[in-house]
Amino acid sequence: MPRTPQQYQQLKEERRSALLKAAREVFARRGLAATKMTDLAAAAGISYGLVYHYFPDKESVFATLVEEAIQDGIRLLTAERQGPGTPWEQLQRFCAQILEHVREETSIPLILVQARASESIPAPVQRALERYTTQFFQQLVELIEAGQSAGQIVKIPAAELARLLLSTVQGLALTQVLPRPDDAPFPATDTVLRLFRP
């Protein structure tokens, strides 16, 4: 029996999602410059030609991953800022979720680091990265400023604290893929935020 249009659309979305999931791992390990479309197809378990039904080139796949990652961060931060509790409690929840994500899924922070550091990133990806990063960073600064106004966060320029937090998260993502002592525990949220306390 032939597929219905809804079944066909669902299958298409599932394949696209599987391709993006596989691409995260490939790009995190190999980077944009060293990755080929054949690598993405092989990792996703689909034919080389089928990849082109979803994306015209590897740069488009990479751009999609970068954009989705930052938009997910913005959604998470926005949800926390609109949630219950004090600014400090919102920051704690946000930080806990980000750290859990880094512990479970290291590829996204690694891709974001590559996108910022690599000279081979296409201009549209750089522009999208700058646009979304600015939006995300500004929301984080505003949350920190709210905590400072409430006397819950140390009075250091909020942009410095925001950069410190993001750098810590990126550094922890790197330590997840680099050799480390077996007895080195992953830092707790309170440990990461200790410098934020007045």
Rank of each mutant, 00 (worst) to 15 (best):
Q138C: 00
L112G: 05
Q114F: 09
V154Y: 06
E130K: 12
T134N: 09
I121A: 06
Q148K: 05
C95M: 04
F94A: 07
K155V: 10
I74D: 00
Q82M: 12
I74Q: 02
I153L: 05
G147Q: 08
E145H: 05
E68F: 00
A96N: 01
Y132P: 00
F136Y: 15
L161M: 11
R103Y: 15
L99A: 11
G151P: 04
F94E: 00
A146L: 08
G85P: 01
L112F: 10
E80A: 10
Q135K: 13
E130D: 14
E142M: 07
E80G: 02
V154F: 06
G147F: 02
R116W: 01
W88L: 12
F137I: 06
E142N: 12
V102M: 07
A146F: 01
S118R: 05
A123W: 15
R163H: 13
P87A: 04
Q90H: 05
R75T: 04
T133F: 07
L76Q: 12
Y132M: 03
E100H: 14
E105F: 12
Q138A: 15
T78S: 06
R103M: 10
E160V: 14
G85M: 03
T106S: 14
A123C: 07
A128Y: 00
E68L: 09
E105S: 13
I144C: 05
R131P: 00
Q90N: 06
L165C: 12
I108A: 13
I111E: 10
G147V: 08
L165W: 06
A162N: 05
I74N: 03
R103P: 04
G85E: 03
E89G: 05
H101W: 09
L99P: 05
F94N: 00
G151W: 04
L91V: 11
T78V: 02
R131E: 14
F136K: 01
P109W: 04
A79W: 07
T106A: 14
R93Y: 03
E68V: 07
Q97Y: 06
